[in-house]
Nucleic acid binder design. Structure first.
Lengths: 253, 253
DNA sequence: CGATAACTTGATGTGACTCAACTTAAGTGG
DNA sequence: CCACTTAAGTTGAGTCACATCAAGTTATCG
């Protein structure tokens, strides 16, 4: 929060905004977007910083431009669980509520397109078409969260690890992430072991064991701690316990 | 589906509709509601019937009037996980999508206020105020699903069982469910052990053991398989691993 | 290059799943 | 209305995946 650099946002149909074609903004007219760009600002947060603390009044909302934001819930006993990960073009923040039930934290260095919540709420009230897009996006998100809940609940740790690896691989193939030539089977997982473990509902130790087991079985290859090569995608799918179709659907949500 | 009886819906500000003050309809004007009542029908489904199958085209949406509907995902290996429970006044159905990712099944005998999905979608497009209420409701639902995901993931089975019992008790206290004098600590859980287990992400056997352990410790008393008395709510809260405030918040979502 | 954090590997205990038998409740038809 | 059948729930014994605690190894950063 303290370290946040502030620039004026470059959104708009002129194509400057890097996430324009994927974010909800895309439903608006040229004029709507100009209005949006007046109330939005680009902000950078270093890895580990808290964008919005759990239970605190929430004043800002917006879209992720670059990096990964984790949405987590910390319980009384201190251990926290990651209930969602937000990627570029995803919307963050809790609209129409006094405070956020979850904390938003920068899992990597992130750049956000931020807006004041009251401003954006007023904008939505005046632009039902965009509010409609927001509703559709939230319905998709609801499906995705439930789907992920079903996965983390009924499956073994190895199945969850395999699912995560495959889904991240598919996503980076689709989105041509930096440093990943399309077609290659290189996966970037820009999260710490602890974050991945919290997301999968396990511990760093168990996670590490599973990753190493996959590596020993030549299913994946550890390039670095956060970078893997998929040597045997078919086996990874088998290990996930899901059908290929299901995995691909999850990857596109 | 086959057994569904059909009546005309009694919604409207005349107060006939039993869930009127809690369902999204309440945001509409008298005229809006008359329009809604023209496109809606009361329908009854016997326990166990499938209202909407997973992956099938979804044509109907609406509100639960009476009973409990389970929202579940069945995986390839056959075991299914309940990702949500819907109670009276809750909205069911998947708007703005060709097919539903989950199945809607009657966990008890249910009565639904149903509408054709295309009709209701058209209605929403013409009534931004109601669509706005729908968005707010879905944002709350999203928080609730994530909250529940955090609970089922980081906690022991006993903690989940205690949480469920306490939350259901609070809900029935709030809603004056049939047969529950307000102030009494009687809980109705209108679900089979299997359904509860699927919802909590465990097995009927483990669930049963935990219930019996709580009964032996005089924390609860088994009146029947689906009816309990809370003898020691404070201990139940302790067993849940949550704070009282958190539990109460969950109960009101 | 030293200090600190992140990750991996090992040993051990246990919560919960599985398989199986038993008990109770709920239907069903004579 | 009661024997009969079938489903639902409970209890028991055995096993295993995973968490925990602890030590070692590899990154990361000032």
């Amino acid at each position: 929060m303290s370290q946040a650099a502030e620039l004026s946002c470059v959104c708009g149909k002129n194509g400057h905004c890097v996430i324009y074609n994927r974010a909800i903004c895309s439903a608006g007219t040229q004029e709507d977007l100009q209005q949006l760009s007046r109330i939005s600002h680009l902000r950078s947060y270093p890895r580990g910083s808290v964008i919005q603390a759990q239970g605190e009044p929430c004043d800002i909302v917006g879209n992720i431009v670059e990096g990964v934001v984790k949405l987590s819930s910390t319980s009384v006993n201190g251990d926290d669980h990651i209930v969602g990960l937000l990627f570029p073009s995803d919307f963050f923040g809790r609209l129409f509520a006094e405070e956020s039930r979850f904390s938003y934290e920068a899992a990597t260095d992130v750049t956000l397109c931020t807006m004041s919540k009251p401003h954006f709420e007023r904008f939505l009230a005046e632009h039902p078409v965009i509010e409609h897009e927001m509703l559709k996006a939230k319905l998709d998100e609801l499906d995705a969260v439930r789907e992920w809940a079903a996965i983390t609940n009924g499956h073994t740790t190895m199945q969850r690890v395999a699912t995560l690896l495959y889904v991240f691989a598919r996503r980076s193939q689709n989105q041509h992430l930096r440093g990943c030539p399309p077609g290659s089977n290189i996966v970037q997982i820009p999260l710490s072991r602890r974050d991945i473990a919290d997301y999968l509902g396990t511990t760093p130790e168990t996670l590490s064991r599973n990753i190493q087991t996959l590596a020993r079985a030549k299913v994946i290859r550890n390039i670095s701690a956060k970078q893997f090569e998929l040597l045997n995608p078919a086996e990874l799918i088998r290990q996930s316990g899901e059908t290929r179709a299901d995995l691909d659907r999850i990857a596109t949500i």
